[in-house]
Design a protein around this nucleic acid. Structure first.
Length: 473
RNA sequence: GCCCGCAUCGUCUAGCGGUCAGGACACCACCCUUUCAAGGUGGUAACCGGGGUUCGACUCCCCGUGCGGGUACCA
């Protein structure tokens, strides 16, 4: 199977567009085929500087490498449409010679007016083929330098195909417009370019977003006029935002790369995207990219739109973090806990791993251990169910224990302090909250005794005494 | 307006004529527990509506409704 992802460089990639890329990539990889990246920059007006680089960076971050495309090249290049204009013009000429396309000199103004009238008459809006019946005049106008476009001549009949996702879909050709193939600036439209490129690049399965369904008959007609065997089409449903609107740039859809900056693992993002419209058929849902390759099949891709759920991503990210080996996490943490040694991170991992939702959480969790533990002003101290006298006694007892027995055996330390609280009729869960606040500056976080062992006896006692001082005021 | 697609818990989904309609996220409760998490157990929660077809419809067909998309010299 040969698939491709063909984005236009009009902005960063969001969850919806990357999901389509993931499916195309997975389809190719899971069948031992090739994945092609092609940049569709035929619209000069919407082109946005630097987005090719952004697109490639995004795909690479997610682990979606391409076999053919920009940078890596390939046997069917170039893989940037603006560098293939000769190819498009050549085939456009062929189409014209075969009577499958004709020139049109209608002005945008006339076209707009025509559509307005059709709409007012409750008719479908389509080009009325005025120029088709006056081709001699059109030829003269073009010779005189009049701007013109090449239009596809939609033949009568019906066009149908067996969509991989949707099954049989068919259109009455009469409902389909004579699509512009070559714009007056000489550039091809998407419709011409996509057909030529997919064929020349030997794409076997066109996996693209649902929104292309209405133009597929145009493409199929082109394949037929060119005497080419069309590829299979797989139109994947859209990804919707919480507002049930299709994810789009103007709708605040986030640049996928931002998830990385927020501390999401690429593999978790891949996993979350795959689950939007695909399911394994088993009850397993947590997969790495490699595991997705093993299980993926286009046949199990859904045909209805999916609403993106951030909570689900969070959950998946936490699960992927927990599945990391200590060494893997130690590596990854280097970026999130700058300035720490590998040894330090190794000691931290057991305390952090099961508490992180995103990598960024490591910083929050570890900060009281790596630096100061600023007091959280919202915290109630002493905490509920513990009076000041008990809190002071506990703090003193802890200090005495630490200076005496040290922090070698925190299990024994905990047991002695539990007994201490017991004797005073205070539940350990309530009493120890005092220690959490004293040591971490807040009521929750990594386990206190581990925290004390980490920062050492000296610093621990300092914090315990500082907390005690607050109670005496 | 015209054309096309889609429709199961709040969300992602399993289901492919006969199921107590299953799982996950979220939510709630309990257990575990030095906090918070994690983990465990249990719970609340769904087949858009109406007609058919059939002994039997979530599953098939039709209509309606809703949502999404297309209707550009944008992709």
């Amino acid at each position: 199977m040969r698939t491709r992802f063909a984005p236009s460089p009009t902005g960063p990639l969001h969850f919806g567009s990357v999901r389509t890329a993931l499916f195309a990539w997975l389809a190719a990889r899971s069948t031992g085929g090739q994945f092609i990246l092609r940049i569709e920059d035929t619209d000069q007006g919407r082109y946005l500087e630097d987005t090719e680089a952004l697109i490639m960076e995004t795909l690479l971050w997610l682990g979606l490498s391409w076999d053919e495309g920009p940078e890596v090249g390939g046997p069917h290049g170039p893989y940037i449409q603006s560098m293939r204009t000769d190819l498009y013009r050549e085939h456009a000429g062929l189409l014209e010679a075969r009577g499958a396309a004709y020139w049109c000199t209608c002005t945008p103004e006339r076209l707009a007016e025509m559509r307005e009238q059709q709409r007012a008459a409750r008719m479908p809006t389509r080009y009325d083929r005025r120029c088709l019946s006056r081709q001699d005049d059109v030829r003269k106008e073009r010779a005189a330098g009049a701007p013109a476009v090449l239009r596809q001549l939609m033949p009568p009949g019906r066009t149908a195909w067996d969509d991989v996702i949707h099954g049989e879909i068919s259109f009455d050709n009469a409902d389909i417009d004579d699509q512009v193939l070559l714009k007056s600036d000489g550039f091809p439209t998407y419709h011409l370019a996509v057909v030529i490129d997919d064929h020349l690049m030997q794409v076997s399965h066109v996996i693209r977003s649902d929104e292309w369904i209405p133009s597929t008959p145009k493409h199929l007609t082109l394949y037929s006029a060119l005497d080419w065997t069309p590829p299979r089409f797989a139109h994947v449903p859209p990804v919707l935002g919480e507002d049930r609107q299709k994810l789009s740039k103007r709708h605040g859809a986030r640049n996928v790369l931002e998830y990385g900056e927020l501390g999401y693992l690429a593999t978790a993002v891949d996993n979350a995207m795959a689950l939007l419209g695909w399911s394994s058929g088993t009850e397993d849902e947590v997969f790495t990219l490699a595991q997705l390759v093993e299980r993926f099949s286009l046949a199990r891709v859904h045909d209805s739109a999916a609403v993106f759920d951030q909570k689900r991503l969070d959950s998946l990210n936490g699960q992927h973090i927990r599945r990391l080996s200590t060494e893997e996490l130690v590596e990854l943490l280097e970026f999130w806990l700058p300035g720490t040694s590998k040894e330090t991170r190794r000691k931290l991992v057991p305390l952090l791993q099961e508490r992180m939702v995103v990598m960024r959480d490591a910083g929050t969790l570890a900060s009281p251990l790596l630096g100061d533990a600023p007091w959280d002003d919202d915290v109630v101290f002493p905490p509920r169910k513990v009076d000041a006298a008990t809190a002071i006694a506990l703090l003193d007892a802890t200090c005495a224990e630490v200076s005496g027995a040290g922090l070698e055996d925190i299990t024994a330390l905990r047991e002695r302090l539990t007994a201490f609280l017991d004797a005073r009729g205070v539940k350990a869960r309530d009493g120890f909250r005092v220690l959490y606040i004293a040591v971490l500056g807040r009521a929750q976080g990594v386990p206190v005794f581990d925290a004390m062992a980490f920062i050492g006896a000296e610093k621990s006692m300092q914090r315990l005494r500082a907390a005690r001082a607050r109670l005496e005021l």
